[in-house]
Design a protein around this nucleic acid. Structure first.
Lengths: 208, 208
DNA sequence: ACGGAGTTCAACCTTTTGATTGATGCCGGG
DNA sequence: CCCGGCATCAATCAAAAGGTTGAACTCCGT
């Protein structure tokens, strides 16, 4: 019997996961959490094998699913954490996996796939949605798609609508440096303007 | 007895709505649809009082929820359509309401609120989520926040990273006209650059 | 220790964008 | 019927952004 904790802020999604997974004879939902903080609390108690963790917990929440995942998996004897989220983007998946998630699934997956992923997680095997696995492999092959931390920071401010001058002031740089970063960003993303760079980075999930 | 049709591409969400609403004694879920096309078909048959309609049907779908809503409500004796979506934005809500939706709800609403909205819709009364209703009233008070159709079109291409020249070619305009539209957009949104305009419009839900 | 990548900056030039002013025609409400 | 908003375009100027070249520094791994 695999004991499950469902962590999601949407009541409808919690009910849906419960309904889908309760029909499996070897699953038992032992707890539900509507906030990330509550999920961390409940995961600390014994009697939980797998945590189904959402990443987005509404704008009013201080802790997100990735943080909660890190806190849960940091403890000895912790349950496995399976991230189940709506939309996939690199900006979400990589932090979640680095935080110690055993798997990553999309909510639009068919019920059988969910159940199989839970069993894999309970057995300690990793379970990744096909689209996520594809992009991880793609990432391995072409390292060109990765922006440096500084470049991501600059691009984030560009996405907020700041001019190069404002960005240079905000980061205590010269405009020349900001331009230099942008040129590198453009070549890496294969675009030639700031708005196109923002769009491309959004599409690839490099920024949110 | 209120007979319901659930239209959503996510199996988990369908199961969740079913679980939440089936517990109400006066509700009966008579059908489910995983695509917008199927929802239109099923809504045409008699025996459906209220359609719970999602707006996003995945990238592989030709018809979205707003189109489906329009087709359903266009027929005589059509059931009421209640839009139930994940995130709310003006770019989604207004087309949906214009298409004839009786109400607009968010999936993170508590179950009782969902049930009450369904009863309101069945009785012909409109049911709007508080945040949606707030913004509709806000819209009435300050008409400054509304972009014209052409302006929205231009801004959409700006958000796609196109230059003014490319936009003018795409829309068969002169660059002067594109600039003119942008100036109007900037004043309406209170910004002074294209990237800031895109960000602001995204935040207000004027574009997706 | 060497090379590569990242970060920082400079100078110069071209293109794009934004700001301003002004003009025309269309359409719908008071 | 006239006014205002919308859409269209022109011309001009200043500012911002983009492209190029070159260079110095740090850090990291081989």
């Amino acid at each position: 019997m695999i004991r499950l904790l469902i962590a999601d802020d949407h009541p409808v999604v919690r009910a849906g996961l419960r309904a889908v997974l309760e029909s499996e004879p070897d699953f038992a939902i032992v707890a539900e959490a509507a906030t990330a903080e509550r999920a961390v609390e409940l995961a600390a108690e014994p009697g939980v094998d797998v945590v189904l963790m959402d990443l987005q917990f509404g704008p009013g929440s201080a802790m997100n699913g990735a943080r909660a995942t890190a806190e849960i998996t940091a403890r000895p004897g912790a349950p496995r954490v399976l991230v189940v989220t709506t939309y996939d983007s690199d900006a979400d998946t990589l932090p979640a996996l680095e935080a110690g998630a055993t798997g990553y699934l999309l909510k639009d997956a068919p019920p059988e796939e969910l159940a199989q992923a839970v069993r894999a997680a309970a057995a300690g095997r990793s379970a990744l949605a096909p689209s996520v696995a594809d992009r991880l492999l793609e990432r391995m092959r072409s390292p060109a798609a990765a922006l440096s931390a500084r470049e991501t920071e600059v691009l984030g401010l560009v996405a907020d609508g700041l001019t190069n001058q404002r960005i240079s002031q905000r980061l205590h740089l010269s405009q020349a440096t900001v331009k230099s970063h942008l040129v590198h960003i453009y070549t890496k993303l294969g675009v030639d303007s700031r708005t196109a760079a923002v769009r491309e980075a959004r599409g690839r999930g490099l920024i949110r």
